[in-house]
Simulated assay, not measured.
Amino acid sequence: MARHELLDNVSHRELRIHRVFRPGHGYDAGVARVFPAEFEALQNEYPLFFMKNRDTGHFEPIALLGFSDEENLYLDNGRWDAYYLPLTIERQPLLIGFQQQDIDGIPTEVPVVHIDLDHPSISETEGELLFLPHGGESEWLERMTSVLMEIHEGHQAIPAFSQTLVGLELIESVSLDLQFRDGSSQNLKGLYAIDESRLAQLGGTALEALHKKGYLRLIYMMLASMPNLSILTERKNRQVMATAS
């Protein structure tokens, strides 16, 4: 169970972050929420889809990491088996919270850094220091603060992206029927992708509008990521065959 606290250099001065990329160490998730600014790096290694946020109705981009809720096929003997680490994975166990502050006499919700004290990466003996002995932020924490700001900005960018794609009917539901070498199979639902046939039908005006917003590039990067699904399936095949043997 998560236990979030506002990060400060007094209460948490002795804490370190010791990442171990193995099952059971806090990275067991079948998907990672991702953001448009990282699509260029993501498309090379992860299949990119959308999932619908039931609370907002927006379609949010995700990187598929496995074929069940807690299956992460990028965990490999203590390391993350990809060159690029999605921002929402990299930031753990830190997260964005909000705190009301008085700015020019107006109560304003501002983003602040929180820490999940129950995350398995928390240590007092190993790993990256959060704070320097005199109380300043470590280089690692400075990096994570910038990552959290990228995530915050990414959250703000998604609604307009989603609304534009929905308005042009460019998102379609997909169902993945997966067959593995040990004879097992799996049907994965709840994912959405770019509708290529609909994209091909768009006229010049719509395409120009997508291009001006920077969305056409994002669309093609999501489409370019699709071959990674076969690579992810092969990761699963190696796992099931190793288990069978």
Rank of each mutant, 00 (worst) to 15 (best):
N77I: 04
G78F: 10
G78Q: 13
G78D: 10
R79K: 15
R79V: 15
A82S: 00
Y83D: 14
L85Y: 09
L85I: 14
L85C: 12
L85P: 08
L87P: 11
I89R: 04
I89C: 02
R91M: 11
P93I: 06
L94T: 07
L94Y: 00
L95W: 01
I96K: 07
G97D: 12
F98D: 09
Q99W: 13
Q100P: 09
Q100M: 10
Q101H: 11
Q101I: 12
Q101N: 11
D102N: 15
I103M: 04
D104N: 09
D104L: 10
I106Y: 13
T108C: 02
T108P: 03
V110W: 01
V113K: 01
V113N: 02
D116G: 08
L117A: 03
H119G: 08
H119I: 03
H119S: 01
P120C: 02
P120I: 05
S121W: 05
I122W: 07
I122H: 03
E124N: 13
E124I: 11
E124D: 10
E124Y: 12
T125Q: 14
G127V: 06
E128P: 08
E128G: 09
L129D: 10
L130P: 05
F131W: 05
L132C: 05
P133V: 00
P133H: 02
P133L: 03
H134V: 12
H134C: 12
H134E: 15
E137W: 14
E137R: 14
S138K: 01
W140Y: 15
W140E: 04
W140S: 10
L141D: 12
L141H: 14
E142A: 14
T145A: 14
T145D: 15
L148C: 00
L148Y: 06
M149F: 13
I151Y: 00
H152F: 11
E153R: 15
G154N: 04
H155S: 10
Q156N: 12
A157V: 07
I158K: 05
I158Q: 05
P159E: 04
P159Q: 01
S162R: 02
S162K: 08
Q163Y: 04
T164I: 00
V166W: 04
V166I: 08
L168T: 00
L168N: 00
I171Y: 05
S173N: 10
V174L: 06
V174C: 00
S175D: 11
S175T: 15
D177R: 10
D177H: 14
L178C: 12
